[in-house]
Design a protein around this nucleic acid. Sequence first.
DNA 1: CGGGAGGTCT
Length: 727
Amino acid sequence: MFRHAAATRPKSYFFLAHRRQLSSQRHAFPVDFIATAIRPFPDYSPKKPAIYDAELVRSIVTALKQRRSESPDVILGPFAARFRSDHLVWAFLHLRSDPVLVGALLHWYRPRGRPVPAEALAIAAHVAVVSGEPASARRLLRDGLVSHRNFVDRVIYTYKYWCSVPSVFDLLFGAIVDINRLDEARTLFRHLVTYGIIVSADACNALLSRLTLDHMLSTFSEFQELGLRWNTKSCNVLIHGFCGAGKTGEAHRILLEMEGTVGASPDIISYSTLIDAYCRYGELLQATELFEEMGDKGLMPNAFTFNSLITLLCKNEKVVEAERVFTEMMFRGVAPDHVVYTTLINGYCKSGKLPAVYRLVEEMKNSQLVPDTVTYTALIYGLSRSGNMVEANKLFREMVGKGLSPDEVTYTALIDGYCKEGKMNDAFYLHNEMLQMGLVPNVVTYTALSDGLCKQGEVETANELLRETSGKGLELNVFTYNSLINGLCKIGNIEQAVKTMVDMEAAGLCPDVYTYTTIMDAYCKSGEMDQAHDLLREMLDKGIQPSIVTFNVLMNGFCTAGMLEDGRRLLEWMLERSIMPNSATYNSLLRHYCMEKTMKTTTKIYKEMRASGIMPDENTYNILIRGHCRARNMKEACYFHSEMIGKGFSLSRGSYNALIKGLVRKKRLTEATQLFEEMRAKNLVANREIYNIFIDINYTEQNIEMTLELCDEAIEKCLPESDLNKI
DNA sequence: CGGGAGGTCT
């Protein structure tokens, strides 16, 4: 049923509506200003058909109404030759309460090569809105907008005669925003105000969220002054905008003041957005304070809120704490979704804790949560990182099998995995495959490939690749330059590395802690401690904070240069500034004292390390074991060996050699043989000396077959003795 | 209107 009464409604209705709006505003306008400012919608009516046309239209309409179940093509076919675009509107006059038939007529007319007139599209949209079909109205409006320059005018022009309702303008506004004509949306808002129409806050929010921060703010105040009452979502958009620009202080201010200035109280999204920003910028304290505060206000944190905290903890390599928060969240009755699981899985992937990863994947499946592309990418990345390309590929196929599409991030994770293994052919094969899939490799992909080439010593090829990358219009960034600089350092070309650092500055990129640490390491390794120190000075002057790696590089430099006093001083300097050393810091010192065969000092330092709560890593154990073996402390060596096995660490080639040699010396042949077999099973090559020992033993015991096998193996695999010291 | 994946230094 169509309500003709609506046609008389607009003027007074909107006047009242507008007054109501203003009375709740802080900046009230004089009422008589509004009374004179509002103009009525135009009085238009469709032009009259000629008798011939009217009869044609009546026949068409009758046919459509009576034969609803038949295809419009069949019904309208006979009229096709005589049908003009004018007939559309005349037909709509009879079909105004029947949006289905309006749609059918348009649908039939449209593909016939002639454009649908703006007027017909606008009318069809009004009919759809009035009949409660906003989705099709929006489609029609969008069509009108893209095909007719003055479509907005047509919608306003036809508004009154077709007894439309104000929400058509929300849809029109939304459609303009959809096609990204943001200035036009703002103009429309102002224009509609002159008719006494205020576009809804939600429609305006869609615009707001697409604007840059500056425009966002100016639009917010302008629309507010024109009579719009913004809502909580609007403030959330502003909060998000400020957060994205790093202005958490401003965002926080909105959260605190929105109730008073806009009359909209912050909701769970307002808080979560700000909490997420604090987490992103590493301000855990601020984040947790807000977390508490929202609870006090009766806003319960949800999976989004918790996820931000979990992400931050994972980023800070506190994945165990992250899981504690995860457990706490479930305890509070918040069910984790697939995103939270992905966050935590990724955290464990980064720290290489695959058993925990598998446990969470299992748990996720049991909760009926479905992993998506992001989840799979995190898993593939985790497996690539731990050198397990076979499993990574299996997962890749599994995700494709499940109908998920790998994107450029997924491919890059796999490509990086191959690069880290030095399998550059596989890496480039995947690069080609992603091109064939229509995916566009980005600067991250090329950085991974370039880094892979650099690590293979093919710095020239990497340089060539990056030239091509720039040629494609991709902008190289700090990561790219750093990996190239590292490549140059590793082939011993520090001079070129420094030149490249200058290049990157010329390209407008600031060398960061990675750049400096990389070059400092090169200087340290070539014994140029003064140069390294100069660079440290330079980076401190620039206000770049050294990382633990920077200190470790220096520590390693001091130790290898035999500047032990400087090393110890550096350690104390770090401790005084509560810069927490890690296992690598201590490993340099330990390695040095082991080489000096001063195991007493080594043990003292090791005890200091444990007392500071620093867990030894695989390297630490290998250093200690080799040291104790050389000092012939087999009891200690064996103790550390069993402890490291208990933690899932493995002996290095050097440690195997040292342990076996030590055990043989103590005549503990059973243990020595067992280790030798274990070593061979892992495809690690023993020293010539060790082979000789076992060849002798087997020969003495007349195990001729074994003797020959070992001889062959030694000839095939062992390097000449002279090269052994280089390993 | 809010959350999760990939590339650089020992």
